[in-house]
Design a binder for these strands. Structure first.
Lengths: 341, 341
DNA sequence: TTGAAAGCGATACCAG
DNA sequence: CTGGTATCGCTTTCAA
């Protein structure tokens, strides 16, 4: 414990053998290199005895592999992302990879910095939920030869692996569902954001409305803080609630704000106003009435993302960017009581 | 881009100066070492031009510092932990530290492995929400000289920094609140777990009940999976609901299961049964009726934990374990409609 | 003001 | 079968 700190060299000195031999033993190459059983035992016993742990930094420096994957999401405290993080972590772990994650909060500059830090740390691959405006950096990152899987959002002009859901169609059919129930004045509430998934959801809504000769009612909230958003929501609903029969929310936390506003205005769901939200949430199942939603396939998203990445990790840099995949998964429509006429 | 890969040596060669000078410039020691302005500029310009990023692995290997803190929680997909993770990450980031986190799922073996991996990676400090049975490992970890802050739970016999809440008192006064409202048959539903925070919450309940000459009704669920837990909850309530007037849940996800069971049994809250839960949750605020809860001070917990750790990080190993702190924070009782008689 | 060289702790090539 | 040694990329005395 004291004296010479434990390193492969100190062990070599102590046992009177070379570092090479120890390295082979510790990396399971004893068979392959035909190290004698007794030497192997001697090494393993001593390593056990002093509880030696190889220095992963030194190893990574030498091998160029860190066995670490960076997972960059919008906000780790959103249930959607933390659920994905958990799944991906578990799966990566089984393949010997550690996940190291961070939240971008949709801040492009912060994200660029994060990517740079990870590059400096030489992580082996990236799974990224990109904020807008990050295209150039991602292109650069891909060019570095490390595999990159983009999640949740599509980036125009970035050739890499994607795992997405069919936002457009999902919202189209959810809106169609409302129309089929007999609703006519259907609003869509979203963020004023250029993120592809938001735009696709909006476009799904618009198509459904136009295909059925109805009039779109679209409200785009400032992405800002929660309180501000809720104020905006309240004043929008206050003005419009008499003319709106149903609302489609583009994501779950906006819907939660909407539910608060609806309650505050004393409106009943679904009698006064019907509600559907993108991205299911435990709260929706428990709410009275239960809120109809479009559930994303969290497990499939995670699984596809990590499998895609792992499959690239074996390859050499030149092959990494071959045949980029674009995996588009289907959501599940979960009809509940918030929109039954 | 091609040819010699970017390293401090290749830059040195290209510019015809020494690596030392470059290192000084890059680490802001140019003033101190009185490097000439023109040389500084030359270096910075070239570094900018080729977009050079120092290899953090090599740097850490040399300096023994990784500027990384390990955050080990029970489950990153629990709102409580992901909220803490987010706060801690933000604060660490401002001090130049990266957070790297994992979930233990209360699995002791997995946690030991995690700690070992982090030791190999030479992280600078640890913030840990410990599973039971991890004492020895934590003691060993502390002995390694790296600062360790334990969160949420107390470990008997482990001398280190703690950030906890007053579980005992919080539940005592919540139970007392129910008693003061006139409830007599008050049950406590918890996990069958030896985690200190769970035991303390239980003991707070028991004290309040005994102090008021009532009879404790305690149900300990198997920690197993969610579905199984919900089944247990349902069958417990089915049997006991006629005799129970109020329930205190030891944590939010058990309460959610309880709410499902209560609804399924057609019981009304608070008329048939009153409800209080430890650990507030957005769902409780939105539920009908809104659920009374004991809110933990997430921001204060995070802030104290990271500040404590940062304050130790400056010190040398021998001083790290001096004067271990035990910070106990107060919760906030949030009375809502689920227990008004 | 700047540079040479040692060394952090592992791996991997080449010998023998 | 095992060992010597260069090397990964950087920091940091010590000298000049």
């Amino acid at each position: 414990m004291v004296g010479k700190k434990t390193s492969i060299t100190s062990i070599a000195k102590h046992l009177g053998i070379s570092t090479t031999t120890i390295s082979f033993v510790l990396n399971g190459k004893a068979q392959e290199k035909r190290i004698s059983d007794q030497l192997v035992k001697k090494v393993l016993d001593y390593v056990e005895e002093i509880d030696y742990k190889p220095n992963a930094l030194a190893r990574s420096l030498r091998t160029g592999k860190s066995n670490t994957i960076a997972l960059i999401v919008e906000d780790i405290s959103f249930p959607f992302f933390s659920a994905i993080a958990k799944e991906i972590e578990a799966k990566a772990y089984k393949s010997g990879y550690k996940i190291i994650y961070s939240s971008t909060e949709n801040d492009t500059a912060k994200t660029e910095e994060l990517i740079e830090i990870y590059q400096e740390k030489h992580v082996d691959g990236y799974i990224i939920v990109p904020p807008t405006g990050i295209q150039a950096k991602i292109v650069e990152l891909c060019a570095s030869g490390k595999p990159v899987v983009v999640l949740d959002r599509y980036l125009e002009g970035v050739q890499t692996d994607y795992v997405l859901v069919n936002n457009d169609e999902s919202v189209y059919s959810a809106t169609k569902y409302l129309i089929d129930q007999g609703y006519k004045n259907i609003a869509f509430i979203t963020l004023n954001s250029l993120q592809s998934q938001m735009l696709d959801r909006l476009s799904g809504y618009e198509k459904a409305i136009l295909d059925n000769n109805l009039t779109p009612i679209i409200q785009k909230l400032t992405p800002a803080g929660r309180l501000e958003r809720e104020k905006e929501l309240l004043s929008f609903l206050e003005k419009k609630c008499s003319s709106i029969e149903a609302i489609v929310f583009s994501t779950n936390y906006i819907c939660v704000g909407g539910l608060k506003a609806i309650k505050q205005l004393g409106l009943r769901i679904p009698e006064d106003i019907a509600v559907v939200s993108f991205d299911d949430y435990e709260l929706f199942e428990m709410y009275s009435p239960a809120i109809t939603s479009i559930a994303q396939p969290i497990e499939a998203i995670s699984e596809n993302a990590i499998n895609l990445l792992l499959s690239r990790l074996g390859k050499k840099a030149s092959e990494v960017s071959q045949n980029p995949q674009k995996i588009i998964l289907s959501t599940t429509f979960v009809p509940r009581d918030s929109c039954t006429k």
